[in-house]
Amino acid sequence: MMKLVMGLGNPGEQYKNHRHNVGYMILDRVAKKLNVELDIKKKKTVFGRGKHGKMEYLLLKPLTFMNLSGEAALYMASFMKITVENIIVIYDDTSVPIGEFRVIPSKTDDSQEDTEEYTIDHNGIKSIRESLKSYNFTKIGVGIGACPENEEKADFLLAPFSKDERKKIRDISDNVVDATCIALFDSPQAAKKKYS
Rank of each mutant, 00 (worst) to 15 (best):
E117L: 14
G53F: 07
K192D: 07
Y135H: 15
Y91L: 06
T83F: 00
S162M: 06
H18M: 15
P148K: 11
S134G: 11
M66L: 14
P11A: 02
M80R: 15
L60W: 03
V103C: 05
G7R: 08
S131W: 05
I104P: 00
Y195H: 05
L58N: 01
Q112L: 13
D28K: 13
K61Y: 11
R102N: 06
V30A: 05
D178Y: 02
L38N: 01
P11S: 02
R19T: 07
D92S: 12
L74G: 03
L58Q: 02
N67S: 10
E85S: 12
E117S: 03
L38A: 00
A190Q: 08
G23V: 03
V46P: 02
D171W: 10
I87W: 01
K163V: 09
F79A: 13
P188A: 10
R29H: 03
K81C: 02
G145H: 04
S187A: 11
L8P: 01
E56H: 13
K43V: 06
G23R: 04
F185N: 06
N150E: 15
S78Y: 10
T138M: 01
V5A: 04
V177M: 13
I182N: 04
K42D: 12
L60C: 12
F101W: 01
G124C: 09
E151I: 10
F137N: 04
R102G: 01
Y24W: 10
M66C: 06
Q189V: 13
I120A: 02
S131R: 14
D155Q: 04
K43W: 03
L157E: 02
E165W: 00
I40Q: 09
E71G: 03
I128S: 10
E117N: 14
K42N: 08
I120R: 01
M6I: 15
R102I: 06
D164F: 15
D93N: 11
T138K: 00
N150Y: 11
S134T: 05
S106E: 07
M80Y: 15
N175W: 11
L132W: 00
F101P: 03
P97T: 08
T108P: 11
F137S: 02
K168T: 10
V176G: 11
S106Q: 05
N35S: 13
I26C: 04
L68T: 01
Y57E: 15
S95I: 05
E100D: 13
I40M: 13
M2E: 09
T94W: 02
I144V: 15
L4V: 07
I172W: 04
D171Q: 14
K107P: 06
A146E: 15
H18T: 15
P188I: 04
